[in-house]
Write a protein that binds this DNA or RNA. Structure first.
Lengths: 260, 260
DNA sequence: TAGTGGTCTAGACCACTTA
DNA sequence: AAGTGGTCTAGACCACTAG
């Protein structure tokens, strides 16, 4: 049983968060190692004088973090380090868009017949007219991201003008894409800049780049838009950690919920 | 209030899962749209005849999925689509390693003085001897991933031999890295193959590639290993979705075949 | 002040594993 | 048969938001 700490009932920190930190600390320090069994729920209940639901919630959080696994009838066991649990997010992109000096410059916006790839992805017949938008995200004069997008052309939905400024992109990350799309799929590719892309971004053709491809669907499950963000490989990378999170002594847990 | 469904107490599916599906369906169908307030917890309790904890758990899941946000004193509200909530995982790597015909071929394994980057990342003095391992992951004869790794040389820990076969890599994803490391950090870069890397992978120099860089730390918070997986950009991509997850009945059309 | 979600209690019954 | 985690109940008090 972890030593030296108990639950501080007067703390602003909920009991279940304290318990998570106690257990995670015991794992991080090697007191419980991969494969070891944690104390049973009832043991934890009596050891820390909390109710079963509180222990359950703490263990549930460790489960979500991949730190332990549970088997009904056997117990709770410390999980070994697994790369497969690592996840990457788009916070770097989001941070870029949130910066004050970042603007979007439209380099093309017109209605034209869809190419074969756009038609396939948008679920329309080859040659159907779609709205094509190309824009550069830049900080000052420095291009960061080149965005190409094709939207199904729907004259009854005049949202197009509102799609054109920076806030449209910012909203895509932060606040929602109009009220239209209900669901999106993203694919991240490694790529190398073509001549056109390199020209837009002011780099040499053949430079490393990310491509973040996206498709958005409406409530009817039909595609609304398809496009991709082409990002300088030298400016963006993705980070993740596995195992015991952040060695910083922060009491950062619990902050996962309730963003916004 | 969502219509037409109730909680089936005789189902193998827990009540809270059923409630999540009911609410998510109501959001996906547009019955509740971004910004709308969901029924309060007590309303849901009486509407579906379940206890507060069950409703709470269902809403907690929607919160984790980013589908709703909650504010104490105000209520529960449907979240708009936000790209920033998308996460990518390494399941493709994991799947590759799990395939039966995939093997690891050691192309180098020796003790040599650390270069400046390895020394810095491993936290040892420049020129300290480290174990350098380079291997190719291949399916049959086809190279998929080139892995370079440097391990701090510790004669007291003779785990080195066991690090050399396929299972060592598989375990890194699935089962854990020996019993040594406790924590790891990962960085994903977009890159372009150097001559040496291209030679190892049987591709042309300048091809697109992923580089997954990793550092593992032991219980003493000292680095144990540093290295990177260099992966063919044409074979790997990362997928994620935002908003209501893809419907069961496979309506995702062309999103699958697409590879830029 | 009324209503909301956030936390927590002290149990219960069940399915499952192990011996 | 004993012990484990998985689900669920029917409340409680609190902090916060709103009118």
């Amino acid at each position: 049983m972890p030593q030296g700490r108990g639950i501080d009932r007067s703390s602003y920190e909920p009991a279940y968060v304290q318990l998570v930190n106690i257990l995670r600390g015991a794992i991080a320090s090697g007191q419980y190692q991969a494969g070891d069994q944690l104390p049973t729920e009832s043991e934890l209940c009596s050891a820390y004088d909390v109710s079963p639901m509180t222990v359950r919630r703490a263990i549930g959080m460790l489960l979500d973090q991949g730190a332990v696994s549970t088997t009904r009838g056997r117990g709770t066991f410390v999980q070994p380090l697994r790369l497969a649990t690592a996840t990457f997010d788009l916070s770097e992109f989001h941070d870029i868009l949130a910066e004050p000096g970042v603007t979007a410059r439209i380099v093309e916006a017109r209605v034209l017949p869809a190419g074969p790839r756009a038609a396939a992805n948008l679920g329309v017949a080859d040659g159907t007219h779609v709205v094509s938008i190309r824009r550069i995200l830049q900080r000052g004069d420095k291009p960061l991201i080149y965005h190409r997008e094709s939207l199904v052309y729907d004259p009854t939905r005049p949202t197009i003008e509102s799609e054109l400024d920076v806030t449209a992109l910012r909203d895509m990350f932060e606040g929602g894409v109009g009220s239209g799309p209900k669901r999106g799929e993203l694919i991240l590719h490694a790529s190398v800049l073509t001549d056109e892309e390199a020209g837009r971004l002011g780099l040499d053709p053949g430079s490393a780049a990310w491509v973040l491809e996206h498709i958005f669907y409406g409530y009817d499950e039909k595609p609304i838009s398809w496009g991709c963000f082409i990002c300088r490989g030298d400016l963006f990378s993705f980070r993740a950690s596995v195992g015991a999170p952040a060695p910083e002594g922060e009491a950062n847990a619990g902050a996962r919920r309730n963003r916004r």
